Amino acid sequence: MRSQSIRERVVDRNESFGGKRRARRWDWLVREFPDIDQMSVIDLGGDANTWMQSPLHPKHVHVVNIDTPPAEVPDWITADTGDACALPAEFDSRRYDLVFSNSVIEHVGGHERRLRFAESVHRLAPAHWVQTPYRYFPVEPHWIAPGMQFLPVRARAVFARRWPLAHVRSADLREALTGVLWTELLDRSQMRYYFPDSAVLGERLAGLTKSLIAVKKS
């Protein structure tokens, strides 16, 4: 589909505008944690492929995602199925140097679940990097749709079904509602509430804050 091709050129491919922004964010992560290649990292809600394609590998990465992990990963990656808001008790006996999370906290399902997510972040390691798209950036990043996040829920769902740049086209209105209801962008006050001892940094685009990153160094 032509619209999907446009989306790939804009955000999905590594050489796209979005791909270049992700590369810059990775450079920023390395500047904040220059010894990351010596760190044990737990990635909450991430993807093993992201780390496999990264230019610098941590000593070890443990990826935890609700989706089924890939069958094969390098020996420096462990990939498990799990809920970052309700991790098994066995995780409490493990120690990591850094918790990493990219564009996950806005999808976990409401304030109470975000609290549980933040508790996992604080408990698992002395340092963290938690990124989320900023609610008041004028373009909703998941659908690449101007102002979509400010519409009423039903209007967002109707819009999501018809908008050509959506990552996945919904089969019906209920499926579109599911996607909309599981996507709740955050602002600075919320990030400061969940991460009160962290620096909440702004990633900027064209002078506007595009995403927020809660950073804490050990």
Rank of each mutant, 00 (worst) to 15 (best):
F137G: 06
A84L: 09
R95H: 07
Q131S: 10
G110P: 00
D97G: 07
E140S: 10
A118S: 14
T78Y: 02
E140G: 11
V121T: 05
D80A: 15
H57Q: 15
N102T: 07
R94W: 07
A79G: 06
R114Q: 14
H128W: 05
R113D: 01
N65E: 06
F91Q: 09
H122D: 08
P133T: 06
F137C: 10
P70Y: 06
G82N: 09
L87N: 10
H128L: 02
P55G: 01
L56W: 00
E112T: 02
P58H: 06
H128F: 13
F91V: 03
A118I: 03
R94T: 13
V139S: 07
H111M: 02
G110D: 05
D67E: 12
W129P: 00
H62G: 04
E140I: 14
A71F: 10
E112V: 04
A89L: 15
T81N: 13
E112F: 05
H128R: 08
V73Y: 01
V99S: 03
R94I: 13
V64C: 05
T132S: 13
H128A: 06
Y136N: 11
V73I: 13
C85A: 07
I66E: 00
V121K: 00
E90T: 10
F100P: 00
F137S: 06
A127N: 01
V99C: 09
A79Y: 03
R114E: 10
L87M: 04
S93H: 12
V64P: 01
R113H: 03
P74Y: 07
H62P: 08
R123A: 15
P88S: 09
L56S: 04
P133Y: 01
V130G: 02
L56F: 03
I105P: 00
P69T: 08
W129T: 00
P69F: 00
P69I: 09
S120E: 11
P138I: 13
P70G: 08
A86R: 09
L98A: 03
E72P: 06
V73Q: 08
K59H: 15
V139M: 11
L124P: 05
E72L: 13
V99N: 03
D80F: 11
L115P: 04
Y136L: 14
H128K: 11
T132Q: 00
F91A: 10
V63R: 00
V139I: 15
P138N: 08
R116Q: 14
H111A: 01
H107E: 12
R116A: 15
F91W: 14
H111N: 10
Y96L: 14
A84N: 04
L115V: 14
Y134G: 06
R113L: 07
Y136T: 10
A84R: 02
G109D: 03
N102G: 11
P74M: 12
L115T: 12
I105K: 00
R123N: 08
E112I: 09
V121M: 04
G110W: 01
R123K: 15
L98S: 01
V121R: 05
S103E: 13
E119Y: 10
R94N: 04
L56G: 01
S103A: 15
L98R: 01
A125K: 04
P70M: 05
P70T: 07
N65C: 13
S120V: 08
V130T: 06
E72Q: 12
P138T: 06
W129S: 00
R94M: 11
V108D: 08
S93G: 14
A125R: 03
H122E: 14
